[in-house]
């Protein structure tokens, strides 16, 4: 991260493809994409992690398939095909989560299905996977997916800590802690996101 080359200055190494999603082009903190799940299911660290990993999985699989089919899909129907591919993997993920835990599925609720319209995934398919090799697309998807998960975890940890006094369900504060109810309500998502954007922006401006 110390000497990120500007996108076009040097040859982009595969490490850069991976790293960019984690920090420099973080989908949540820099690109501000996919806000719906970011705000809605980051109320606890566990939900945030599950949502992040589910999205990362869909992103990885759809990137692979889109990249594989990039010479086969005519450009007029490309968006429709991407959505079809993404929706397939979302449905697969939906079943998988149900089979892992009914409770987790209840907590994530409609937001699993809404991964279909997460603009992060479509944007990676359109902007990257459809123009790059499979191996590069995998790296890109892993970086972006983990970056998304990392950002969700950042929000989820803060919201659960303040809103419930715990982290991954384990009590952090002593008995009698006054929880900040607002933090687990939707409004708390906006507050926390704003605070993180402030912090990340300050850090990135300092580095630049």
């Amino acid at each position: 991260m110390t000497n990120n080359p500007p996108p076009s200055a040097k040859k982009i190494t595969s490490t850069d493809e991976f790293i960019k999603g984690l920090w420099r082009d973080n989908p949540v903190f820099v690109q501000v994409l996919g806000m719906c799940p970011v705000l809605a299911v980051s109320n606890t660290a566990e939900n945030a992690l599950a949502m992040g990993l589910a999205t990362a999985f869909v992103l990885l699989m759809s990137n692979i398939l889109v990249s594989l089919l990039r010479n086969f899909v005519p450009k007029q129907v490309r968006i429709a095909s991407y959505i079809l591919i993404i929706a397939t993997f979302v449905t697969v993920t939906d079943y998988a989560i149900q089979a892992i835990s009914v409770e987790l599925h209840k907590a994530l609720g409609a937001f699993i299905s809404l991964i279909v319209v997460n603009c992060l995934i479509l944007s990676r398919a359109e902007a990257f996977a459809s123009k790059n090799t499979v191996s590069k697309s995998v790296l890109d998807a892993l970086g972006m997916g983990l970056g998304f998960t990392f950002a969700l975890l950042c929000l989820g940890a803060v919201r659960e800590l303040l809103g419930n006094g715990s982290l991954f369900g384990l009590a952090v504060f002593p008995e009698g802690f006054q929880s900040w109810i607002v933090m687990i309500l939707p409004a708390g998502g906006f507050f926390t996101l704003a605070a993180w954007l402030l912090v990340i922006n300050a850090l990135q401006t300092k580095k630049a």
């Binding site: 089919l69 010479n71 086969f72 005519p74 450009k75 490309r78 095909s81 079809l84 591919i85 123009k131």
Partner: peptide
């Protein structure tokens, strides 16, 4: 790198094949 935008517009058979295949 294959730039999709530079491809020639495909015929409807090709589109149909792609969509049905996927």
């Amino acid at each position: 790198t294959v730039n999709i935008a530079s491809q020639n517009p495909a015929g409807s058979t090709k589109m149909l094949k792609a969509m049905v295949g996927i």
